[in-house]
């Protein structure tokens, strides 16, 4: 309403509180020392305030990551809520940093905070963006790789939200497989 200060407008609460993490690769430090919690938020308004305050994905230095995880889940395989899970992985070609990366990452964030996966939204742990010289990656992490129904539903909805065509497939990899094999040999547990 006209004349009403923004501070008086009730914010829209999210189903979950989310934590945004930033990883900056410094080879003189351990992996965990390079991982920083930026902030947490639990309303639509605070999400946008944060989103417009930080660098777009495409402007990050290669080697950096953004991670968005539910409060209480750390963005690493070892976390109790991640260790039996896996990730839907979207691998981008180099040129897609300029055409698709920011759009894909924003859609990923909106899927998470909006709880877009119906009854399976509870399976979602978070999402990870890796900016890399050889090609950027975005992944949605879920809690239980053996939950076929939940994992495949999340994959189908996610693929549709990214606007990927039927010709494109994305794969789901269990973290235990990713951790034990070299990257290129990790098999897909599911594909959509």
């Amino acid at each position: 309403p006209k004349g009403l200060g923004l501070e008086m407008v009730e914010k829209h609460p999210l189903q979950n509180r989310w934590a945004l993490w930033f990883f900056k690769n410094d080879k003189s430090k351990t992996w965990q020392a390079n991982l920083h919690l930026i902030t947490k938020f639990d309303t639509v308004e605070d999400f946008w305030g944060l989103y417009h305050h930080i660098q777009p994905a495409s402007k990050l230095t290669p080697g950096c990551d953004y991670c968005l995880f539910k409060d209480g889940i750390e963005p690493m395989w070892e976390d109790d809520q991640n260790k039996r899970g896996g990730r839907w992985l979207v691998t981008l070609a180099k040129q897609q940093r300029h055409t698709d990366l920011d759009h894909f990452w924003l859609e990923t964030l909106l899927c998470l905070i909006g709880e877009s996966f119906e009854q399976f939204s509870g399976d979602v742990c978070g999402a990870v963006l890796n900016v890399r010289a050889k090609g950027d990656k975005i992944a949605v992490w879920t809690c239980e790789a053996d939950n076929r129904d939940g994992v495949t539903h999340i994959g189908r909805v996610y693929k549709e939200r990214l606007g990927l065509t039927q010709k494109v497939t994305i794969g789901y990899q269990a973290h235990t497989d990713t951790a034990s094999k070299s990257h290129n040999l990790t098999k897909n547990k599911f594909v959509v």
Binding site: L14, G49, E107, C111, G114, S116
Partner: peptide, 20 residues
């Protein structure tokens, strides 16, 4: 009640609160 928001709803708040 679960709080679910579709993308259009979320996007609708993007610029209203961008300067907060």
């Amino acid at each position: 009640e679960k709080k679910r928001y579709d993308r259009e709803f979320l996007l609708g708040f993007q610029f209203i609160f961008a300067s907060m």
